[in-house]
Simulated scan of single mutants.
Amino acid sequence: MATEAFEEIAETFAFLDDWEERYRHVIELGREMPPLDDALKVPATKVKGCASQVWLVPRIEAGRYDFAGESDAMIVNGLIAILHALYAGVPVAEVPGLDAEGELGRLGLQGHLSSQRSNGLRAMVERIRRTAAEAA
């Protein structure tokens, strides 16, 4: 089951009439994410498989998953924000089993992202799942 933050995004997407409005909303979500400290933008935190540069830094607190992230592309920052809404606060043991594809499918993103962006989104999900599984 999705987090409350992700449900809010899904409700907003359902309310917005067309993809251009949704696209602008994704970018706005990315702008609201705090920037990642430059010291954390290192090869170990960089996500391979993304067309743009993406860094994800996992944080596990009290058995719950969280992460910080940033990209050099505005739309990808928005995708990071959506993933943050989906995963932040989820018990770390539940993260690998969360149906990210199904939840993201509710937003209709796949039909509007380039194949490179879709591959990058999958790479970010896999990184999140892997880091959570390692921490569990």
Rank of each mutant, 00 (worst) to 15 (best):
V125L: 06
G105C: 12
F67Q: 00
E94L: 10
W55P: 15
A88D: 04
G97C: 13
V76Y: 07
H112C: 03
V95K: 09
A44D: 05
A93P: 12
Q116M: 07
N119K: 12
R59M: 10
G111C: 11
C50D: 06
I80D: 13
P43W: 02
M124K: 01
A39N: 10
P91F: 02
I80K: 05
Q116S: 14
A93E: 09
G105M: 07
D99S: 13
G89F: 02
A123W: 08
D99F: 04
L104H: 06
Y87V: 08
E94S: 13
L83A: 08
R130W: 10
A39R: 03
A85F: 12
Y87I: 04
R64G: 10
A133T: 12
I82D: 01
I60K: 05
A39V: 11
L86F: 10
E101D: 07
L98Q: 09
V90D: 05
K48R: 07
K48Q: 15
I75W: 11
A51D: 04
L107C: 03
E126Y: 03
E61Y: 07
H112Y: 13
E94D: 15
A85H: 13
K41C: 04
E103P: 02
L83Q: 07
L98F: 01
A100G: 14
G49H: 05
M74S: 10
L86N: 12
S71F: 07
N119I: 00
Q110M: 15
I82W: 04
L36I: 01
A132F: 05
Q53K: 12
D66A: 15
Q116R: 02
L36T: 01
V57E: 04
R129L: 10
A123E: 03
T131R: 12
A68D: 02
I80Q: 14
L104T: 03
A85T: 14
